[in-house]
Nucleic acid binder design. Structure first.
Length: 462
RNA sequence: UCCGGAAUAGCUCAGUCGGUAGAGCAGGCGGCUGUUAACCGCCGGGUCGGGGGUUCGAGUCCCUCUUCCGGAGCCA
């Protein structure tokens, strides 16, 4: 007889029948004559109450000493629970202790701090909150794939290791097989990088965008969805050294269409996940971020505000607010400015578009004014910038000029430039920080708690 | 990296004016109970993050290092 998942058992129409469940004890309450075991198996937030009577084989020796953390397999009957607090319970016929847990089991029945849980990343997925986070994360990943697949986007597997020496998105991790103690030297005594594994310097990717553009110009609609790496010394609640990014790239698409794409993407996903993860999101609404459900529902149902960069600066200037960083036309919007726009002025998601060229990347499409580029950022309350994207510069000569102006070596990007010589078309794409998306969904304050094994400066345990 | 805060029992925290430490939970023992992060009683448990200094005396004040948290910058 096969075991069943608690999620499925709780969803049954009625009690009855023999079942086998396997999982871990969230708590064990030993009463006179019987024990109540709260069993969880990760399939859902709810546990299943197992009632073990004292006449069971091995009751005193095996069941009575059970405590939080132990793994058990239970065979018994699914019955209507006579107690309050649960609809069904399992009347045990046999409880097999698969893996006991000693009194030094670090997880307790009560709340732990997230800081402490980070030090036990091998056990924290068993907690209610982290368990829910990882279920929501999984559902979000699958919903993202589904959303793109339904619209004819091809999942393009962009490389993790790259030899583009700069993509303008931050410091990169070096990938090398050279002996750092005694690297091979050229006649001048410099490290001979031609002797390295790829015959040239290589790094972990900071973005799949440039390769995704290749895909857009062959398959029309593609997306990259995988890990990316930044070696920035960022110590904040919304930065990781290793994080996942979703990067759709679409041909024959300009800025307006890109904003539509980003907005419908976010709103559709919110709507879908509100349904799919109702139980887990309710837990976040109750315990982590009161008002979360209302906020997500609003995002799913209301159009996003859109404002050009110039207007955004005017709004900030007129706000009467004193900002730590001055609001100035031509300067990038700071975190406090972005927060003011989406949290106070518009009170919801905002798309800011057409930024000054000087503060944006070389590959963004230059407007006719020669001063702004067709870039857009989606700002959401609580998290800030969640999406950044742009229409790409598809005109060869304009791109070449921009690269030179930005101090980049066109040789390195020969293939990127060549795409602009053979069948170049307007195209556009955006990047969504997957962990920030999960943060937004769950209301979790620290990005380290929405990825199973966070990598940040000074920490790569587990 | 910069600014601010924190580090006390296994965990979550309190500790007043500088006079060598407490609670709840967890653990052990006992009791009670179709229980609900059960409840009641008793017990054990601490190099107060490391190093240095001031002082008769430092968990408490000062310096320094480490780690963590919050904010900023960089960004997603």
């Amino acid at each position: 007889m096969a075991s069943e998942r608690i999620r499925d058992l709780l969803a049954r129409e009625r009690a009855g029948g023999e079942v086998i469940v396997e999982g871990w004890l969230r708590t064990a309450r030993h009463a006179k004559g019987r024990s109540f075991l709260d069993l969880v198996d990760g399939s859902c937030g709810s546990g299943l109450q197992v009632v073990a009577e004292e006449d069971l084989a091995g009751y005193e020796q095996e069941i009575r000493p059970l405590r939080t953390g132990a793994a058990v397999r239970v065979r018994g009957e699914l019955v209507d629970s006579p107690g309050r607090g649960q609809r069904y319970e399992v009347r045990a016929r046999e409880v097999e202790v698969v893996g006991p847990a000693g009194p030094d089991y670090p997880l307790q029945k009560k709340r732990h701090s997230f800081e402490f849980l980070r030090t036990i990343a091998h056990l924290r997925p068993r907690t209610n909150t982290l368990g829910a986070v990882f279920r929501v994360r999984n559902a979000a990943a699958m919903a993202i794939h589904q959303w793109f697949q339904e619209r004819g986007f091809l999942w393009l597997h962009t490389p993790i290791i790259t030899t583009s020496d700069a993509e303008g998105a931050g410091e990169m991790f070096r990938v090398t097989t050279l002996d750092l103690g005694e690297p091979p030297r050229d006649p001048e005594g410099r490290v001979d990088e031609r002797a390295d594994f790829f015959g040239r310097p290589a790094h972990l990717t900071v973005s799949g965008q440039l390769e995704a553009e290749i895909g857009a110009l062959s398959h029309g609609r593609v997306y990259a969805f995988g890990p990316t790496f930044r070696a920035e010394n960022s110590n904040t609640a919304r930065h990781l050294a290793e994080f996942w990014m979703v990067e759709p790239e679409m041909a024959f698409l300009e800025l307006d269409g890109l904003m539509d794409l980003a907005e419908s993407f976010l709103r559709d996903l919110m709507g879908r996940l509100l349904e799919e993860c109702a139980e887990d999101l309710a837990l976040f609404d109750q315990r982590i971020a009161p008002g979360l459900l209302a906020r997500l529902e609003e995002v799913a149902s209301k159009p996003f505000a859109r404002v050009a960069y110039g207007e955004a600066v005017e709004i900030l200037a007129r706000s009467g607010r004193r900002f730590e960083h001055e609001v100035a036309l031509g300067a990038d919007l700071k975190t406090e400015h972005e927060r003011h726009l989406c949290e106070e002025h518009f009170r919801g998601p905002v798309i800011v578009h057409d930024y000054p060229a000087a503060i944006k990347a070389f590959y963004m499409y230059l407007n006719d004014d020669g001063r702004t580029v067709r870039a857009m950022d989606v700002l959401v309350p609580g998290v800030g910038e969640i999406i950044g994207g742009s229409q790409r510069e598809h005109r060869h000569d304009v791109l070449l000029d921009r690269m030179r102006a930005c101090g980049l070596d066109p040789e390195t990007y020969w293939w990127y430039l060549e795409l602009r010589r053979f069948g170049s078309v307007p195209h556009a794409g955006f990047g969504l920080g997957f962990e920030r998306f999960v943060q937004y969904l769950t209301g979790m304050a620290n990005i380290r708690d929405v990825i199973p094994f966070p990598r940040v400066p000074g920490f790569a345990e587990f």
